[in-house]
Amino acid sequence: MTEPTLQVEILRYRPETDQDPAFQTYTVPYRDDWVVLDALNHIKDNIDRTLSYRWSCHMAVCGSCGMMINGEPKLSCHAFLRDYYPNKIRVEPLNNFPIERDLVTVTDDFMEKLESVKPYVIPKQERAVDEGPHLQTPAQLNTFKQYTMCINCLLCYAACPQYGLTPDFVGPAALALAHRYNLDTRDAGREQRQEIAASNEGVWDCTFVGECSQVCPKSVDPAAAIQQTKIASTIDWYKALLNPWGKR
């Protein structure tokens, strides 16, 4: 009995030899408990050692194996072959990012944007260790908990046409994390984050396509975070207009 197989078409780009990326097709064994990442590992181990891609945990936690799978941004460890079999699977690097090599993208732009929104608790006053922990109720935690689930996998950036059209756009994950810290009762850094989040390149480049939330493997819902930031920033703007002498 012959083992069932499946064709995987991978966009290859080797900067030292290739002018443009091009597809290369591999035939891999089909197993119904395999994900696309297993197929890639099979190719790397048995067929073509030159194939480059990022991965680490194989369990949708590390956020490093995001790819375009049949045109949709997905974690390759989360995309089962059985959902595509017997059809061919097309694997490309994440949209909207420069390709470093094969399926590996350059993510520096996101890293800079993430840093720019100060995604950490900025307390009003530093707390000494002997003052004890800063308490927070479960209700307070739940206002922002979903936004803490972000694994920086960048599927939302690959799904966002506005990021593709306007590379300066701060983008979904970074804005969702800014919102996450703004909602945190231990935090007093909203004004600093608003410098970026409420700028033209911040929430205002978003047109609520909503795809970021659709493709998010962790149900973070960046589109909701951005929408709420737009409303809060608009209220700030009118408050400042009505009370120009008040504190900003």
Binding site: A198, S199, G202, W204, K230, S233, T234, W237, Y238
Partner: peptide, 12 residues
């Protein structure tokens, strides 16, 4: 970054 005036048109 410059403070945005987008809230005017966005609220409309």
């Amino acid at each position: 970054m410059a403070k945005s005036n987008k809230p005017i048109v966005w609220s409309l």
